[in-house]
């Protein structure tokens, strides 16, 4: 186990290997160093471990507990976990259609604002200051992710590469301490992947965010991750520095295939 990582999965009922549970939905190991990005890679084509869902509270794990900075967050409601500094993006995008890019990113500030009927009805006296202050914070993120050009566009009409960036912006606007990126490179071309990789590194270095990256692209993993954990059907088959993990024969067998099929 690594010391000083914010999120820790503890298996209440450890199986023989001590870390991985036998059930696919029991994700049981520790990941990520403080202010370090790490990759969590799973076998392509196999059922992915539902890693972001238990952390963010959508499905509680069948076994074990999830600790965030030492605090047990197992079974807490997703909207409450968000207030503890956990943000995530979705593999298939979950932006709010019918709203502008700006409003989508402003929604990322939700946990820092106090939405109320009074602040809406008496906007000029009660709401404006708060809205303006949070707008300034959002503009910082917009500048950081170079989204100025599409700020006022409807989120439905921008290209997918930008949509992924808007989702990252919405997550970063919440000023999380722990950011889960679920396949942020899915469906992107090489150039868009390079942009995204740069933004993830900047988020880590400039905003001090710990990033958990779930990713299949080996070039991205070896290029930007500090720690890597390889899973095969929910069981951990390797962890450590990415270069070492991808050289592990078990990882090679799971991801590329073993020798038994060769003639």
């Amino acid at each position: 186990m690594l010391a000083g990582h914010p999120v820790r999965y503890c298996n209440a009922n450890p199986s023989s290997d001590g870390l991985a549970g036998s059930s696919r939905s029991t994700v049981s190991t520790c990941i990520s160093n403080a202010a370090r990005s790490s990759a969590w890679s799973a076998r392509t084509g196999a059922a992915r471990p539902p890693s972001p869902t238990p952390i963010t509270g959508f499905y509680p794990p069948q076994r074990g507990r999830i600790l965030l900075n030492g605090r047990d967050i197992t079974g807490l409601a997703p909207h409450y976990i968000a207030t503890l500094g956990v943000a995530r993006t979705f593999q298939n995008l979950a932006l709010f259609n019918g709203m502008s890019v700006l409003d989508n990113i402003l929604l990322g500030r939700h946990i820092h604002m106090k939405p109320s009927v009074a602040r809406t009805a008496l906007y000029w006296w009660l709401g404006r200051r708060d809205e303006t202050a949070n707008r300034a914070a959002v503009e910082e993120v917009i500048e950081f992710l170079q989204l100025e050009g599409v700020r006022d566009e409807l989120v439905d009409v921008i290209p997918i590469g930008l949509k992924k960036r808007v989702e990252l912006a919405r997550a970063l606007a919440a000023e999380p301490s722990f950011l889960v990126l679920d396949e942020p490179m899915a469906g992107m071309n090489q150039e868009e992947k390079e942009y995204m990789a740069r933004f993830i590194l900047d988020a880590r270095d400039e905003r001090g965010v710990t990033v958990l990256l779930i990713e299949h692209h080996m070039d991205v993993i070896t290029g930007i991750c500090d720690r890597m954990l390889a899973l095969n059907y929910g069981a951990m088959i390797g962890s450590g520095i990415p270069a070492d993990v991808i050289a592990d024969p078990r990882v090679v067998e799971a991801y590329i295939g073993g020798a038994h099929g060769a003639h």
Binding site: H79, F90, A94, F96, G98, L107, G108, H110, I111
Partner: peptide, 16 residues
């Protein structure tokens, strides 16, 4: 609007 559009995404950014 977030609740209307996608309640799971709303929850993830802290909207109850």
């Amino acid at each position: 609007v977030a609740v209307r559009e996608k309640d799971f995404a709303a929850a993830v950014i802290g909207v109850n």
